[in-house]
Simulated scan of single mutants.
Amino acid sequence: MEWKLEVVVVPVSDVDRAKLFYEEQVGFTVDHDTRLRDGIRVVQLTPPGSPCSIVVGKGVIDAPPGSVKGLQLVVPDIEKAHAELKARGVQVSPVQHFVAGGRVDGHGEAWNNFVFFNDPDGNGWAVQEVPSAVSVGSGNG
């Protein structure tokens, strides 16, 4: 049996602000913006090429806004991803890699090139470059 991750709920304080950030600045596609009833709104957004989406909304999760850390995207070209995020106005870290558990500016070995950013509420994202021999979304990242 296959088990596929479909959606990750990201707690936010302002749904409209989060929707604009993820759509306009990060470049996610808005799949739907649905108001189920008073007090419940679900906005689903998907990163380009990803089989998994995020949901931001009102009345969909009890976690405090900004409490999700370690969300991770994978890309084939970290420099291109960094440039795109920066051009879209995202406050993104320089390209960094890990040495002895700490982050250091600059490129590392294969699988060890990242950029980091937070959404307006402080939910934390990492973007990791995958080696070109491994396809994005293969489950090997």
Results as ranks from 00 to 15, higher is better:
46 T>S: 15
69 K>T: 11
111 W>N: 14
5 L>Q: 03
125 W>P: 03
61 I>Y: 13
120 P>E: 06
51 P>G: 06
97 H>D: 10
119 D>W: 05
20 L>Y: 03
104 V>S: 05
99 V>T: 12
132 S>W: 02
41 R>C: 04
132 S>C: 03
4 K>Y: 01
55 V>F: 13
105 D>A: 12
65 P>G: 02
119 D>I: 08
40 I>F: 08
39 G>N: 04
95 V>M: 06
2 E>A: 13
76 P>D: 14
32 H>N: 13
73 L>N: 00
1 M>Q: 06
84 E>S: 15
123 N>L: 02
30 V>H: 01
122 G>C: 11
128 Q>E: 05
11 P>N: 07
130 V>H: 08
3 W>Q: 12
77 D>C: 09
1 M>Y: 03
74 V>M: 14
88 R>A: 09
62 D>G: 15
54 I>G: 13
36 L>S: 09
122 G>N: 12
125 W>S: 02
135 S>H: 06
115 V>Y: 07
58 K>V: 02
92 V>F: 05
42 V>K: 14
35 R>Q: 10
36 L>Y: 12
43 V>P: 00
46 T>K: 15
21 F>W: 05
71 L>P: 00
120 P>I: 08
127 V>A: 06
17 R>E: 08
82 H>L: 12
86 K>N: 10
60 V>P: 12
128 Q>Y: 03
49 G>C: 09
52 C>A: 15
48 P>T: 11
8 V>K: 05
34 T>Y: 10
46 T>R: 15
103 R>N: 01
95 V>E: 02
49 G>L: 09
138 S>M: 09
118 N>Q: 15
59 G>L: 01
65 P>H: 06
53 S>W: 03
58 K>A: 06
131 P>V: 07
22 Y>M: 03
117 F>L: 07
20 L>Q: 10
102 G>F: 08
49 G>I: 07
115 V>N: 11
89 G>K: 09
88 R>C: 08
6 E>F: 01
86 K>W: 03
47 P>R: 11
85 L>E: 05
135 S>T: 14
131 P>D: 04
39 G>R: 03
101 G>R: 07
92 V>I: 14
5 L>E: 00
99 V>P: 00
24 E>C: 01
69 K>G: 04
59 G>E: 00
55 V>P: 04
133 A>L: 04
